[in-house]
């Protein structure tokens, strides 16, 4: 075991894993984390705590993760390269581990242009792949990036990364995932899947190269409540592939919320059948209360005891 987190235990035991996203509030309200945690308690292996997602200032992911821990949830702390250099990152990794966080998800981070401070300077001292390698070095070699030793108490972290099978160039996304696995990513969370056929093609390439044996792949899924949400993402989020049939189906639905859940359930069924998919990561943007409903209906409850 690398970190002996629940997520790692479930994945390494060969169970189909479930994680869900938990976005910290745009204020200092600890109760908000408690409320959102309640939807996930006992229903998922871990909750993924976003790090100032879309460059909108929110409560720190590590602080929110510590709060989630206190409510009985295991966090996956997100860390983006946009806002801190290697010194602050390593310091925060030590801090997160000291607080009991055992999973860390390494990302580049959305550009500040999309958030509330487009005039901010970005950092990008490291990129996401370099961050992954740095965490691995801290954990496995007990060294800082500089090579200086970490004396005892190295951070025991299960390392996560993301990949977007829908961004370009399509074939290179597989190479990039291989680089992330080689750098030390223990698990991969994908961008929201709406184009299941394209995802299936991508997974075929992943399996062909044996990458699913080097890192666990969690399929990212987002239940939506209306066809407008899909149109918005199609038009405004780069690297999203949203088939028109899906938009039409949501638009034609009498009960769009129920249809959104149905679509998500169908997707879960499909990814479960795909070779190489080790679990799902649910991202119900602004609709956290639907997480337990979907998991119940998908037959993914109760969660395995490990």
């Amino acid at each position: 075991m690398k970190a002996a987190s629940t997520l790692e235990k479930v994945l390494s035991a060969g169970h189909f894993a479930v994680t869900a996203e938990l976005g910290p509030p745009q204020n200092a309200n600890a109760e908000a984390i408690k409320k959102k945690s309640a939807h996930c308690l006992g229903k998922v292996e871990a909750v993924n705590i976003t790090d100032n997602q879309t460059a909108i200032v929110r409560m720190s992911s590590i602080a929110a993760a510590a709060l989630a821990l206190s409510h009985g949830l295991e966090p996956v702390v997100q860390m983006v390269c946009r806002d801190r250099n290697r010194i602050a990152m390593q310091s925060d990794i030590l801090g997160a581990a000291a607080l009991g966080c055992k999973n860390l998800l390494c990302l580049s981070g959305d550009h500040q242009m999309f958030g509330i401070h487009p005039e901010a300077a970005n950092v990008y001292d490291l990129d996401s792949i370099q961050l992954i390698a740095m965490v691995k070095k801290m954990r496995d070699d007990k060294q800082f990036l500089s090579g200086d030793p970490i004396k005892e108490f190295e951070p025991r972290i299960f390392i996560g990364a993301v990949e977007n099978p829908f961004a370009d160039p399509f074939e290179f996304r597989v190479v990039r995932l291989a680089k992330k696995a080689a750098a030390g990513a223990d698990f991969i969370q994908t961008q929201c899947i709406f184009d299941i056929d394209k995802f299936a093609r991508w997974m075929e390439l992943i399996v062909k190269q044996g990458l699913h044996k080097k890192t666990y792949i969690l399929a990212g899924l987002t239940p939506v409540r209306s066809h407008r949400a899909l149109i918005y993402m199609k038009n405004n989020v780069a690297g999203m592939s949203i088939p028109d049939e899906l938009i039409e189906r949501m638009e034609a639905a009498e009960d769009p919320k129920a249809e959104g859940v149905n679509i998500c359930l169908e997707m879960i069924e499909k990814v479960k059948q795909m070779e190489g998919v080790a679990g799902i990561h649910l991202m119900p943007i602004g609709w956290e209360s639907i997480t337990p409903v979907i998991l119940e209906q998908a037959g993914l409850l109760p969660r395995p005891q490990v």
Partner: peptide, 11 residues
């Protein structure tokens, strides 16, 4: 005041 870095290489 904090500088607007959009005019630099950040954007």
């Amino acid at each position: 005041e904090p500088k607007d870095w959009r005019t630099s290489t950040n954007a």
